[in-house]
Amino acid sequence: HPTISSHAWTDDSGSIAVTYHLALTAPGHGDTLWNSSSCIAEHLLRPHLRDRMFGPRAKEAGGVTRWPPRRALEFGAGAALPSMILLREGAGTVVMTDRITNEETFEALEMSSEKNCRRWDISEEERERRAVVRAHTWGEDAEKLLEAGG
């Protein structure tokens, strides 16, 4: 693809590989992998890091009480490493969003979802059900995201 780059990410243990794509024309550093994205992906993979990330009060505050989550939503996904890890972990529905700048941003998300699901033996039928890509810019009505999450 002329304006979408392909990359490989590997977790700290070196055992889990994720392919991610970036739209080279995305503004606002959307064309780079953010450290926080990699850091969250790593934290989602390890139970002790998950506990630390969600905090001791997560449960009483109505936060994550089950793993994998039934429905997850990533804002400003970009490379969408956390969403890819959530698909691998078995989250029911993963909604990936990014703001509307160009079509490539969403193509890149679909490409990542396709490649990684194939690698993890998630059928195309299952992927279409579980991995949802939606455009979302701050301030827009969130109703469509709630619908996308089922």
């Binding site: 953010w34 926080s36 994205s37 969250i40 109505g62 994550v64 009480t65 089950r66 989550p69 039934r70 429905r71 997850a72 939503l73 990533e74 804002f75 400003g76 970009g78 956390p82 969403s83 959530l86 989250a91 909604v95 701050w138 969130a142 995201l145 709630l146 999450g149």
Partner: peptide, 20 residues
């Protein structure tokens, strides 16, 4: 949603509350 992810400056507490 059981889980919301926002990697960095995009985090917005208003959304967090509205969507949970």
């Amino acid at each position: 949603f059981d889980l919301l992810v926002a990697s960095d400056c995009i985090y917005n507490p208003t959304y967090h509350e509205a969507l949970l």
